[in-house]
Design a protein around this nucleic acid. Sequence first.
DNA 1: AATGAATGAGTATTCATTCAT
DNA 2: AATGAATGAATACTCATTCAT
Lengths: 217, 217, 217, 217
Amino acid sequence: MTRPKRRRRTRLDPSLRRREILEKAVVLFARNGYGRTDVETVARSLGIAKGTVYLYFRSKRELFLAAVEYAVRRLTEKIDEEVRQASGPVQKVKALVGAHFRFFDEDQAFAEVIAREGGEFRTRAETTYDSIHTHNARRLEEIVASGVGLGVFRRTDPRETSEILANLLSGTIYAHPYGHRTGKVADAIEATMKFLLHGIAAGAGNGTRNALKRRRK
Amino acid sequence: MTRPKRRRRTRLDPSLRRREILEKAVVLFARNGYGRTDVETVARSLGIAKGTVYLYFRSKRELFLAAVEYAVRRLTEKIDEEVRQASGPVQKVKALVGAHFRFFDEDQAFAEVIAREGGEFRTRAETTYDSIHTHNARRLEEIVASGVGLGVFRRTDPRETSEILANLLSGTIYAHPYGHRTGKVADAIEATMKFLLHGIAAGAGNGTRNALKRRRK
Amino acid sequence: MTRPKRRRRTRLDPSLRRREILEKAVVLFARNGYGRTDVETVARSLGIAKGTVYLYFRSKRELFLAAVEYAVRRLTEKIDEEVRQASGPVQKVKALVGAHFRFFDEDQAFAEVIAREGGEFRTRAETTYDSIHTHNARRLEEIVASGVGLGVFRRTDPRETSEILANLLSGTIYAHPYGHRTGKVADAIEATMKFLLHGIAAGAGNGTRNALKRRRK
Amino acid sequence: MTRPKRRRRTRLDPSLRRREILEKAVVLFARNGYGRTDVETVARSLGIAKGTVYLYFRSKRELFLAAVEYAVRRLTEKIDEEVRQASGPVQKVKALVGAHFRFFDEDQAFAEVIAREGGEFRTRAETTYDSIHTHNARRLEEIVASGVGLGVFRRTDPRETSEILANLLSGTIYAHPYGHRTGKVADAIEATMKFLLHGIAAGAGNGTRNALKRRRK
DNA sequence: AATGAATGAGTATTCATTCAT
DNA sequence: AATGAATGAATACTCATTCAT
């Protein structure tokens, strides 16, 4: 009942083909969202047939999920890598923050797929967003705890603090696609670090002023 | 030939009916996302007919957008209200932060529709998320600028700082649906404020203050 | 994302519409089989839209099953009706046989859908064919038992005999679509009855009767 | 670029391979029907590749038809064989009936493919079912005619009678997959023979014979 | 205003068939 | 001969939108 025509025939290494599809999917889902990206489009923009996509992914949903996971893995790997190489709590936090900024700066599409997924399949026990958040929170908790131990960080509850820091980073992800950021990445990292280290209160050498504050209270 | 009875629903004040639909839409879009919420469902769960929804909203898309806008307006109104009533930069920031926390705590659904929209219509010049972010950033810029002027806040670029603060708040929104938060709202607000005011660094000149704090504990 | 066009608009009584679709489905499934009858075709040949069919039947499969059931009900009702009106075991058997012959003669399509279903969904606990067979077997068992009681029928195991008779009838159904039958319906019924009553053996004591018969010819 | 190993299946005698595929096809088509049996499955369950099937059969349809034909040939050969070996009309009829029962009893799958085909390609001038029916009818016509000539069978129209007998056999085929049969094959054959020879009527002049029979029991 | 039957464009998915290796 | 990746026509089904009642 079916009478197929022919066209391309680029026999490709399955593993390469899979990645190829995945990367294109990331870009397209990022650009147009799940609902407005059809499998046909993904295939066509790779010059392959729709059926081929289904050779590697059971369904559109699975493709989407795989794409998100792919993006996430890239991010978390980068984070872990950079954090590992940094030494000292402050530098490690900076590495984590920097990894985020640079990652989303370099690959807008990745940022978007990640940010986007929440909107789709809610049933998934753990959303991708969630997994990044958790990943970050864990890393940060270690760093903060160690920093507190070393007297580098203020005495706070590491868990609480790491959650807040993770929120800040998440906010950064979501804000990114919308271009909310002034200046260059390096500046943004610097600013965020300063904020995160010292807050906005006129503190430290601000001794006098703080003294005032304290009295007012 | 047999044209049976039709249950004509009680005519309702158009304005009330509109709001009624809007509120149900918020809940449903929040729960299931745009793509998996159909107009029929919205109508049915209100006990009205599909056609009726179209009497109040030109299209599903418009309904969704209206629903998000409705949620946003609620939030921004609450924010503005609370900020206005607070006095002094620190209190105003706290009011803003608090408004966020309490809003999303009280109405999960609202938080979700807002967070969700980004994933849908990307073409919209300004996403809802975006509009909240911008709204917050503007309010914060004013507050920060005034705080800096009063010497209450560290001398930073108000715009840059307000963006970071806005990101922190956004992160809070996105984190909310996933239950990432320890303790009660009040505690979360407090922790966030402390973080945002003083950061995490064991500040140099903070020695005295910290020493005091530690003792108090 | 969808931009519907318009066309017909014949608002019909749901119940009528349902039957209308059902009857067309019977004909089409009969003519082309399940696999080669698409919902679009069923709809088009009624001048309605595909979606309308799905308004009355959840799926193609359900439509098919409903169509078969519809055909079956028609047959069994006819059978029961005629059997009820007949008096005496022989007349009742004849009524049952006759109902079959006439039914399939009058509505070839019905015969086919029924015969066809076996090939489709095997998972169904009870196939339609099966349900007819069982229906017939039950009716026949009663009749045979009563006939044996009255001394009209040979002493056989009613269940066994009714199964064989039911098989004969089933064979009749399946043979029908292929035009295996000589002469008119009435003749076929007569021949089948004679066969079923007396078999093909030139019975011992039948001598006289057979002799007569031979002479007549 | 990486073109990995390919497991080249042991080359097989073309004729054997063909039969191997055929037999597997019979089983699978029987079990799941034409529409729900895909070529891939047939191949996989033989441990060969899809393409290989196409080396032996031009198309799925052809494979199906060949499978049915294969099943039919088996049946008709068995029938002819057994009928030939039997002597005398009654024994020949019994041989024919017996061949059916035993065939379908031994190979359910075969019974089903044959029964099933009707539902598929209606366009075929002569269905498989049809060809069996015809085959049987022809054989029976000869036997009946000879039996009538010998005075063993009642004087009936051989064609008409053979059609009815063929229907009975067909009914048997269709009933088989659904397990409508009591007792063992031998009993079923016996019962069918009795029925087919003497019918169900408590024959008038049968008195004597029946009396005898009853006593024997 | 309200209803819900009707519509049909849009899409995910399957699977027979081909063909480069 | 054998393989299985690639192809794309065919289709079931959904659901936003319309409109006759």
